[in-house]
């Protein structure tokens, strides 16, 4: 069972149970995007930007500011990396790969091209997620 892939309905249903337990025990809903805003404030502060002049990082008592980390969601994301690594290693799926198969079929094996599009896509997606509120 640890080596086989799981039916997505089962894995998804268990994720629902995990979310309910998380809300019940600690009051934490699942989310990821806010951590990138918070981490951006930490990085900006570290490279010498005065983040107290940026309204977003001071709004709601500095909820998105550099002092908001580490918190539950940040550790949640660290956990996802670990969980993904453990499960993929057990399943024999772990593989260092620069360009996904479907991408390569259509756009070729150039890793720089993939990196540029992934960075651009990540920036647009996160901007949209923060605008929409999560």
């Amino acid at each position: 069972m640890l080596r086989q892939p799981w039916n997505p309905y089962i894995a998804g249903g268990l994720t629902g149970v995990l979310l309910v337990l998380s809300v019940w025990i600690g009051g934490n809903f699942f989310g990821a995007s806010t951590t990138f805003s918070r981490s951006a404030s930490v990085i900006e502060e570290a490279v010498g930007v005065d983040t107290s002049t940026i309204e977003y990082f001071t709004t709601s008592k500095g909820k998105y500011g550099p002092n908001s980390l580490p918190n539950w969601q940040f550790m949640f994301l660290v956990g996802i990396i670990i969980g993904g690594f453990v499960a993929s290693t057990l399943s024999g799926d772990f593989r260092i790969q620069a360009v996904p198969d479907m991408w390569q079929e259509r756009f070729g094996p150039n890793p720089v091209k993939r990196a540029v599009v992934a960075i651009t896509g990540g920036a647009i997606a996160l901007f949209g997620a923060r605008l929409a509120g999560g």
Partner: peptide, 29 residues
């Protein structure tokens, strides 16, 4: 983030891009 755990390098590029997006959104807020 999870894809990075599976060894996919583009997950890391995604994380970099999202940090950039977080900074841009904060300034556009």
């Amino acid at each position: 983030v999870g894809a990075l755990g599976e060894g996919r390098i583009d997950g890391l590029w995604g994380i970099l891009g999202m940090l950039l997006g977080g900074a841009i959104y904060a300034s556009a807020f």
